[in-house]
Amino acid sequence: GAPPLPPYSAGGREVTMKKGDILTLLNSTNKDWWKVEVNDRQGFVPAAYVKKLDSGTGKELVLALYDYQEK
């Protein structure tokens, strides 16, 4: 199953993602919540729920390892 959710501390809205989604990583300075862009929406997802990909394009991409439903 998915890892436990860290307390929400990102101070911005969250976004929903599905397992297998490829998201653009915008900011990973917060260790628990990373800012991503998905379907032209920006928001935060739990860092433990995604994995960085080596895209080779200069853009940082992450793979959704679990479904996440915004609150």
Rank of each mutant, 00 (worst) to 15 (best):
G1V: 09
G1H: 13
G1R: 06
A2E: 09
P4W: 06
P4C: 08
P4Q: 09
L5F: 06
L5I: 13
P6D: 03
P7F: 05
S9I: 10
S9F: 10
A10P: 15
A10D: 06
A10S: 15
A10V: 10
G11E: 13
G12D: 08
G12Q: 07
R13G: 11
R13D: 14
R13E: 13
E14R: 14
E14T: 15
E14N: 12
T16N: 12
T16C: 09
M17D: 00
M17I: 15
M17Q: 01
K18S: 09
K18H: 11
K19D: 02
K19A: 14
D21Y: 05
I22V: 12
I22Q: 05
L23P: 01
T24W: 12
T24M: 10
T24H: 07
L26R: 03
N27D: 15
N27A: 06
N27I: 07
T29V: 08
T29G: 09
N30I: 05
N30K: 04
N30Y: 05
N30P: 04
K31R: 10
K31A: 12
K31W: 06
K31I: 09
D32C: 08
D32R: 05
D32M: 09
W33L: 01
K35G: 05
V36H: 00
V36E: 01
V36N: 00
E37R: 08
E37V: 09
E37G: 07
E37Y: 06
V38S: 13
N39F: 08
N39A: 13
N39Q: 12
D40Q: 12
D40K: 10
D40W: 07
D40S: 14
Q42Y: 07
Q42N: 08
F44A: 02
F44M: 06
F44P: 00
P46S: 01
P46T: 01
P46R: 02
A47K: 05
A48L: 13
A48N: 13
V50A: 03
V50L: 14
K51M: 12
K52H: 09
K52W: 08
D54R: 08
G56L: 13
G56F: 11
G56W: 09
T57N: 15
T57I: 11
T57D: 14
E60K: 10
E60P: 13
E60G: 08
E60R: 11
E60Q: 15
L61M: 11
L61C: 07
V62E: 00
V62N: 01
V62P: 00
V62M: 03
V62R: 00
L63A: 04
L63E: 12
A64P: 01
L65G: 02
L65Q: 04
D67E: 05
D67R: 02
Y68W: 07
Y68L: 03
Q69H: 14
K71Q: 15
